[in-house]
Nucleic acid binder design. Sequence first.
DNA 1: AATGAATGAGGCTTCATTCAT
DNA 2: TATGAATGAAGCCTCATTCAT
Lengths: 207, 207, 207, 207
Amino acid sequence: MEEPGAPETARHERADSAANHERILAAARDVFARRGLDAEIKEIADRAGVGVGTLYRHFDSRDGLLRALILQTHDDLLQRLRAAADTQDAAHALRAVIHAATDVYRQFGALTEVALAGRLDHLRPDGHEELTAAFTGLLRRGVADGTFRADLDIPMMIAALESVFTSGKVVRLVAERGYAGAAAAISDLFLHACLAVPTGPGRGRAT
Amino acid sequence: MEEPGAPETARHERADSAANHERILAAARDVFARRGLDAEIKEIADRAGVGVGTLYRHFDSRDGLLRALILQTHDDLLQRLRAAADTQDAAHALRAVIHAATDVYRQFGALTEVALAGRLDHLRPDGHEELTAAFTGLLRRGVADGTFRADLDIPMMIAALESVFTSGKVVRLVAERGYAGAAAAISDLFLHACLAVPTGPGRGRAT
Amino acid sequence: MEEPGAPETARHERADSAANHERILAAARDVFARRGLDAEIKEIADRAGVGVGTLYRHFDSRDGLLRALILQTHDDLLQRLRAAADTQDAAHALRAVIHAATDVYRQFGALTEVALAGRLDHLRPDGHEELTAAFTGLLRRGVADGTFRADLDIPMMIAALESVFTSGKVVRLVAERGYAGAAAAISDLFLHACLAVPTGPGRGRAT
Amino acid sequence: MEEPGAPETARHERADSAANHERILAAARDVFARRGLDAEIKEIADRAGVGVGTLYRHFDSRDGLLRALILQTHDDLLQRLRAAADTQDAAHALRAVIHAATDVYRQFGALTEVALAGRLDHLRPDGHEELTAAFTGLLRRGVADGTFRADLDIPMMIAALESVFTSGKVVRLVAERGYAGAAAAISDLFLHACLAVPTGPGRGRAT
DNA sequence: AATGAATGAGGCTTCATTCAT
DNA sequence: TATGAATGAAGCCTCATTCAT
C-alpha cells in the first residue's frame, strides 16, 4: 500500500482521511446490511469510529452515502458477473455467476438486495439495466448453443435469480450451509430450471 | 342482519365499529402495499376515512396493526396454499399454489413479502413455519410419487419460491404480464426445476 | 367573541385550535421582535405554551411562520397607512402615517423592519411595492398641492423614513420618549425635510 | 521594506502573518458585507486564501473577528467623521460627513449597519457613543452658529441619519444612483431637515 | 366511541471550534 | 505556523402516540 520512497508524513493526513472514507463505507455497508436501509447515521458513524460530522464531510447526505454504496455494490457485482460469464460453458458460467453473486452478497448484504431489486433507482439510474443485460447475454448464449432449453423464459429466470438475492434468503442459506453450500444449492436449482432436457418425452410444459 | 331484541343503538355501534375495523385493515393493506412498510399512520387513517384516534382504538400501536395484517395475510395465504395443495397431482398442485400466492400477493403486496420473508417474525412468531410446513408437505408428496426429482433440495426450492414473492419482482411481473401470465411464468420455471427427468442420461448434477 | 345561540362545545375544539394559532403568531411576533429573525422555533413554541409539533401543525415551516407574520405586518401596516393617508392635509397625513407606523412597530418589532426593508421579499413578493406606492401617493399629493416642496426627492424621502423603522432605532426612541414622543419627533424631523419653504431667499440647495 | 539585521525567516514569517491578518480582515469585511452577519467562517477563510485554522490563529473566535471588524469600521468611520466635521461651515460639514459615511458604507457594508445600529454592543462597548458624540458636536455647532434651526432635535436627527446607513437602504441607493448620487440625495434631504428657515412665517411646527 | 389537535422524542444535518499532521 | 479534517452540540422538522372535546 506504501509506495517506496514516498514521504511518510507528507501524505499522512490524506491517508488518514482516505482511510476514514473507507472505514465509513465499510461501516455503512455493515450497518445497512444488518439493520436495513433505515439504519441511523449515528450508528454508522459510531461503528466507523468517527463523528457524524466526519461522515458528512465525506458524504453530503444520507442519500449520498447510500448512492456511493449502491454504486460500489453495482460495480463489484457487475465486474464479477462479467468475469464469471466469460467462462466458456454456459452451465459453468451460470454456476460461476451465482457463486460470485453469493460472494458479493456476503459482503454487501441488504445493499445487494437494493442493487438487484431496482428500488432506489433514483439513486443510481440504469444500474440495474446493466446487470440485467449481462445476465441476459449469458442466458442467451446458453440457449443458442443448446445448453439451456429453447423455451427458457429468460426475463423470468433473471427475475427469479435476482429474487433469491433480493429477498434476504441468501443470508439464511449462507448461515445454514456456508458460502459454498448456499451457492451450490442455488446453482443446482436454477440449472435444473434452465438445462435442456436431452431426450425423453413426457417432459415439457406440464400443466 | 337484525338480531331481534338487541337495542338499536348498541347494535349500530357495534356494526359501525366492526365496519371501521375492516375498513382500517383494508386501508392499511392498501397503503402498506403501495408505500411499503414505512407508510404513515395518518395516511392509513385518511384512506380508511377515520381519524387517527379511531385507528388507535382498534389497534394498540403501529406494530399492532402490522401484526394483525401479517396474521391476516398469513392466514389467507396458508388457507389457500392448503386448498391448492389438495389437488391430487403434485405438479398441478404446485401450479395451483403459485397461482394462489400470486393472487394473494396482488391483494397484500408488500405484506406478502414480509409474511414470506420471515422478517418481522417478532410480530408473528411461528407464522412462517406453518407456511414452510405446508410447502414442504406438497413437495415431499411430489418426490414420493415420482413427480418431482428425487434429489430435489426442498428447503432451497421453498426459499427460491418464497423469494420471488418476497422480492417485489411479482409486482413487475404482474404489471408486465398480467396476473395469469405472471403465475404461469413462475410455475413454468419452478416446475422445470422440480420435475423428474423421465429418462435421458447426461442430465442431473451438471457441473 | 361568542355569537349568541351558537353551540358552545361543538366549536370549542376549533376555537382552541384557532386560539393556539393566534397565540403562536403572537409569540412569534414577540420573540422575533426581541431576538431577531434567528430566534429559535423552540422558544416561540415555549412562549406560546405549545409544543413544537403544534407550531408545525399550524405553520409548515419556519419560513411559513415568518411569511405569515410578514403578511400580517404588511397588511396591518398598509391598511393603517392608507387610512392615515386619507387625511386631507398632506402634512397632517404624513404625521398620521408616522404615528401609525410607530404603532405598528410597537407591535411587530423586528418584523416591521423586515417588512419595510424589503429583505425576505422571496417570502412575500410585491409586499414592499404596495407600501412604497401608498407612500409615494401621499407625498405626490403634498407636492402637488404645494404643501411639500417641489424638489422633494420622493424615493429618497421614503427610503429615509423606512430606514428609521427598519433600523431598530424606533425601539430606542419609543423606550426613551414613549410612543407619542417618538412619533412626534420623527414627524417633526421629516416634516421639516418635506415642507415647502414659504418665501425667503437663501434657502434651497445649500451646498 | 527590509529592516537590516533582522533574521531572514523570522521577518518573513512575521510579514506573512501580518499579511494574512489583513487578508482575513479584508475577506471578512467582504463576506460579511455581502452575506450578512450569518456568513460562515469557512467562506471567509476560503476567500482569504487561508485555512480555517489560520483564521483561528489570528482571531480567537467568530465574535473576536467580528469585534475586530466593528472596531475597524468604527475607527475608520470616526476618523473620517471627525475629519469631515472639521469643515468650517456646518452645512458643508454635514454634507462631508454624509459623503464619508457613504464611502465607508461602500467598503464595510453590513458592518456599518452593525456599527451604527448599536446592536452587538457587547462586542464593542462604547463604540457607538463616540460616534454619537462626534455627530452631536457637529450639529450643536451648526445650531450655535445659526446654520441649523434652533429647535433641531439633535438625538432624533442622529438616529434618523444613522438609520439610513443602518437599514441597508444605502445599498440600493448606491446601486441606483451611484456613490455620489446617493450621498447627495441623503445630504439634501437631511440638510432640509436641519437648516434654519431664514424668514418666512407659517413655517415651524406644522401640526 | 370518534375526532384530530397536541405532544415531544428522535432523526438528519450544519457549522463553530479543535487538533493532529 | 498553516492546514483542513474531525468533532459534536444544537437546530429544524417528522410522526407515532396521547388526550381533550
